[in-house]
Design a protein around this nucleic acid. Sequence first.
RNA 1: GCCCACGUAGCUCAGCAGGUAGAGCACAUCCUUGGUAAGGAUGAGGUCACCGGUUCAAGUCCGGUCGUGGGCUCCA
Length: 644
Amino acid sequence: MQIRVADQTIEVNDGASCADVLSDGLSKKQFKNTVAVKCGEKIFDLNGPLPAVCEELTPVFADTPEGLDVIRHSAAHIMAEAVKTLFPDAQVTIGPAIENGFYYDFAYKRPFTPEDLEAIEAEMERIVGRDHPFTCRHVSKDEAESLFKDMGEDYKLELIHDLGQNEYSLYSQGNFTDLCRGPHIPRTGMLKAVKLLSVAGAYWRGDEKNPMLQRIYGTAFANPKDLKAYLHRIEEAKKRDHRRLGTQLDLFSFSEEAGPGMVIWHPKGMLIRTILEDFERKEHLKRGYQIVQGPLILKRELWERSGHYENYRENMYFTEIDEQAYGIKPMNCLSHMLIYRSSIRSYRDLPQRYFELGMVHRHEKSGVLHGLSRVRAFTQDDAHIICRPDQLLEEITGVIQFVKDMAGLFGFEFELELSTRPEKSIGSDEDWDRATNALTDALESIGLPYDINAGDGAFYGPKIDIKLRDALDRKWQCATVQCDFTLPERFDLNYVGQDGERHRPVMLHRVILGSVERFMGILIEHTGGAFPTWLAPTQARILTVTDAQNDFAETCCKTLQKIGLRVEADTRNEKLGYKVREAQVEKIPYMLVIGDKEVADNVVNVRLRTGENLGTKTIDEVVDMIRNDCLEPFKRGGMSYSFF
RNA sequence: GCCCACGUAGCUCAGCAGGUAGAGCACAUCCUUGGUAAGGAUGAGGUCACCGGUUCAAGUCCGGUCGUGGGCUCCA
């Protein structure tokens, strides 16, 4: 038999393992870096037998994404062995590799402490030192059940029962055996860089009705250097955390007195928001939206009619006045529908696009609150597009293009997900098909890649979600477009068609930034607080060398302010270095330094926050420079904006 | 909501074998007029989150409440 390995054809003897074949085909160095082997799309154990039908073997190297998965999953097994050694009463459950590491969930009578983690890590080191081989064997269902029953592993038994297979694979290293699909690294000694990170509670099988298990998170890399680099990256990312920068740059705060999840915007943060929102309003008008606004509270009966009272009550705030119950809005759609219904609509009037920067209140569970990303009072850049069914595609395409333009403006990477009909849903198959097709067609016509989340749509219609990542790689949903057949029905929205009959329109719910608060959080982390010049609260600061230049500085400052630039003068009796440092820490884009020389020549010396010094410029040149800097991002996004 | 950790001056943090609080930055006053990331001196600032308990004595130990952080569940 012959097998191809790395452009070579290897003659294979009967009974040879994958490792035998690969060691012949690869250099020593390459082979040492191999943790598993790939045949077609499937990955196999390196020290396992050759796959049944296989013409070519590809090595899976330690530092590739697939190799890291194998290493991390193996690390989880080694951690499980360490835990069972130190805490024999603990029961093992499941322990997969995840995006940047791995975890393993244990059932134990008490939570693990940081000291436990240290002990577990030390025990893992011993296991790695013993360099046991990972071995795999296949057993029948009965065998597997009796085995794990003897070991007292109730959770494994439940898994075996629920999986309902006839055969199961078991992996062992040392005297630890786990139910597992594999594959694993050949020997424990190949785990060269591992670190346990944290303990957390997690529900068995992710269901809050189930008991809570003790989860240990860790990470592993191909070598200590990569691990160190990763840990360093995490530390660096923490410095860009918007919660930290929010305090440092004096943008916003939270107050125990005000209540959890309630953002208090300080002047600088609010200034950025205002500029952003102002831009959004203009951009919406350009795209045929109409700006509207509804009240923060609406009668309870209205929420009953919409179905929110029934389905969303736990998340709503209520109030009562004059014996009338009111609900504080968690969504903006209701007033928009009232606007639509305020007159008779012709098919010629559609689509109606209502835009509102609407503040909503949602009583989120206390444990989910997170800086600006998850709050209880926030502002959505919300719009409802009420259109004819035949207009769906064009409207959805318009929304996705809008999102694409905005993402381009800020230089964001984003991920698109299409969520289709869930099991529990309302509406006809025809409606669902048409809406889903419209969403799909829109995605295709824009030409962006997307994932499909089958069955993850809202009960009232399918949707497209757009997710952005924060500094710590957590994904947050921002933009979303949702088709809705229910609300037009419940509120009896209609339009008079060409035929003179009444027809039911479709409604699109959509946001571009999502929550302005959340978006601000992501923007802060994306820029590290160095906002693009058009958004920077202070665009330029004039720094005098001594107070002899203060008059000239004030004059320059007024000139720039009059044009509409956000400029201030630092005329304090401090050394220049001190003033530069302060402006630098505040990440002000332009520092305009004025000493005697500059006053004499009627110029300023320009320093950027990058540290670059542009030399001396006249005030007119400075204005041009800042103006161009402001407009630069808009060229990318294919949008325009006027500042002055 | 659930599990764990944490909560000391505006900010970042130290303090601990239980004996009545400390630094840097920021702030104020004074000296200094100094060219691109911190000049110097002096001073003001805290019922150590809140409530209760143990103790002669609690920031330090115990319990509860509130808040924050890391996760789980849920979601923009």
